[in-house]
């Protein structure tokens, strides 16, 4: 049984929208940025209330740098493991990306060259991480505006090899699939036919916007209709066990966020969590 089976539609919990999240009547799971959880002691009170109400909390790491050639920082791994224990998480997630090298922080997720050397680096860092975790790890492929010049593998080959060699689950971000395909001039549905979708733990959906001919995965704009359509295509192939809306700033009025959550329910067939009537 996959860890989030039956959890349906969730939302990325952020302090700025904790009041909104607390009032979602059908909510069964949230994500929390792992690095935002305290290093010791209890989780924030608002999260503790969700936990008490039976909502699953998934720590989502953004600074581990699993794709770095350098070994992951043991303190960061220990914090992720501790965060998972503190919220009784059914799983944790991180990215197939690097965020620092040689002591320089990028400040965001950077893409890896799709090389065998990079696969080896990810596999080694995932092993170092899962050795400390009590729960499964799901890996998320990122959106990037550029690629490395000398890729040896296709994206599907690269991701499939990492998943096979690590036993990790897949956190598929459908907006990232859309963004990468659009920016490379490819068909986004094409990647869906080549990924091991049966490994999906859950799916991310987020907003973005076109800027100077490129699609930016901003998490601060509305979810485009094309992304929802692609989500529908994914569900036609394989419905993900659970789906989560990410929003990271420029928070819209509650009605707009509720409408986006209801759109995820409509696309996946999972029950509305906003209290909206089923249509």
């Amino acid at each position: 049984m996959t860890p989030l089976a039956g959890r349906g539609v969730g939302i990325g919990w952020r302090p700025e929208i904790s009041g909104f999240v607390a009032e979602l009547p059908g909510l069964r799971f949230v994500e929390v940025i792992a690095e935002s959880l305290p290093h010791s002691g209890e989780p924030p009170e608002a999260l503790a209330r969700l936990l008490a109400a039976g909502v699953a909390v998934v720590p989502h790491g953004v600074k581990l740098s699993l794709g770095g050639a350098e070994p992951v920082d043991p303190h960061r791994v220990e914090h992720l493991a501790q965060a998972a224990r503190a919220v009784g998480a059914p799983l944790v997630s991180e990215h197939i990306a690097y965020v620092r090298a040689g002591g320089v922080e990028a400040g965001h997720l950077l893409p890896l060259p799709r090389s065998r050397e990079a696969v080896d680096a990810v596999v080694a860092n995932v092993a170092r991480t899962t050795a400390e975790l009590d729960v499964p790890l799901a890996l998320e492929p990122i959106a990037a505006l550029f690629e490395w010049p000398d890729d040896e593998l296709t994206e599907a080959e690269f991701l499939t090899e990492i998943l096979e060699r690590t036993d990790a689950l897949l956190l598929l971000d459908i907006a990232n699939v859309y963004a990468n395909a659009l920016n490379r001039g490819e068909d986004p549905a094409d990647l869906l036919t080549r990924l091991p979708l049966e490994r999906m733990a859950y799916v991310h959906v987020a907003g973005g916007r076109l800027h100077e001919g490129r699609y930016h995965d901003t998490h601060t704009d509305p979810v485009p209709g094309e992304v929802l359509e692609l989500l529908g295509e994914l569900c036609a192939r394989q419905r993900p066990p659970a789906i989560l809306l990410e929003r990271d700033g420029h928070y819209p009025p509650a009605a707009a966020l509720r409408a986006e959550l209801d759109a995820l329910s409509a696309a996946t067939g999972y029950p509305a969590i906003t209290g909206a009537a089923h249509t």
């Binding site: 770095g68 620092r100 090298a101 040689g102 950077l110 060259p113």
Partner: peptide
């Protein structure tokens, strides 16, 4: 890979 990642960042 380490050097290439550092050069890029």
């Amino acid at each position: 890979l380490a050097r290439r990642q550092e050069e890029l960042v």
